[in-house]
């Protein structure tokens, strides 16, 4: 589904250069849930943003569902329509109601009729448990509710892959669970997912594979069982000892 080969990304400003990704290779199969772990600044967010072309990789190749997204001839909007993205800070549209947030892209991008988009939107809001808030504006929702709306908004495009960029990091602790539950359900339904997260419990329970990154490079890849009980690399061991 996703094949990223030898991608590198350097952020340049006037005086400094930050190597965010160094020669990263990763693969996600259809129906697989991959959790990307790593300390802050390890490049995991940059990696997931490169997959959606929000950051543009300097080198390497990224192929999603057979389409090379770094090829200048590729219509990136078509690829993005098939790849859902959930952000750390939700990024809901504050001037639209919850339902409008969910129905806008299907109507504008997929040219769905209003009625069709509405029906699908209501079904998705029910799925993420927030149907009663369909007509309120995002600022009246809690963080957990907002993030669930953001997930519904991404799902409304019926994507083939879902990318989650630290979806629970901005939430109060008591709201983390409701968002993770939605994500677990999604994983159970067979959605292909790439999740950047600090939620070890989620990684252990749901992930098919864990990618551990540090300083812009992939350090270790393996099943959660292998990763949490029997890591090979010293850096991984150190990381786990610090957080567990």
């Amino acid at each position: 589904m996703i094949v990223a080969k030898n991608i590198s990304k350097t952020f340049k400003s006037h005086s400094t250069e930050v190597k965010a990704l160094v020669n990263v290779t990763a693969k996600v199969d259809k129906g697989e849930v991959v959790v990307v772990l790593g300390p802050s600044g390890s490049g995991k967010s940059t990696l997931i943003r490169c997959l959606n072309y929000l950051n543009v990789a300097d080198e390497g190749s990224i192929v999603i569902d057979g389409i090379d997204i770094l090829d200048p001839k590729t219509d990136i909007n078509k690829v993005r329509a098939e790849v859902g993205m959930v952000f750390q800070s939700f990024n809901l549209f504050p001037h639209k109601t919850v339902l409008e947030n969910v129905t806008l892209a299907p109507m504008v991008v997929r040219k769905n009729s209003k009625e069709e988009a509405r029906k699908k939107g209501m079904a998705l809001l029910e799925k993420v448990g927030i149907l009663d808030k369909a007509d309120v504006y995002p600022d009246q929702l809690s963080g957990g509710q907002q993030q669930r709306v953001a997930i519904a908004r991404a799902l409304a495009m019926e994507p083939k892959v879902m990318l989650f960029d630290e979806p629970t990091s901005a939430l109060d602790p008591e709201m983390v669970g409701e968002v993770l539950d939605v994500m677990k359900n999604l994983a159970r339904e067979g959605m292909t997912m790439v999740v950047v997260s600090h939620e070890m419990g989620f990684a252990r329970e749901v992930a098919d594979r864990v990618i551990f990154m540090d300083e812009g490079a992939v350090v270790e890849v393996g099943t959660p069982e292998h990763f949490f009980t029997n890591p090979t690399h010293e850096r991984t061991k150190l990381f786990l000892s610090q957080i567990l």
């Binding site: 959606n52 929000l54 909007n77 078509k78 993005r80 329509a81 098939e82 790849v83 859902g84 993205m85 952000f87 800070s89 990024n91 809901l92 549209f93 806008l104 892209a105 504008v108 991008v109 953001a150 908004r153 991404a154 495009m157």
Partner: peptide, 17 residues
């Protein structure tokens, strides 16, 4: 906020949309 553009673009909307 930049996140608004990113959210819109990540849903497949063009710059104009």
């Amino acid at each position: 906020h930049r996140g608004q553009t990113e959210a819109a673009r990540s849903l497949g909307m063009t710059y104009v949309k």
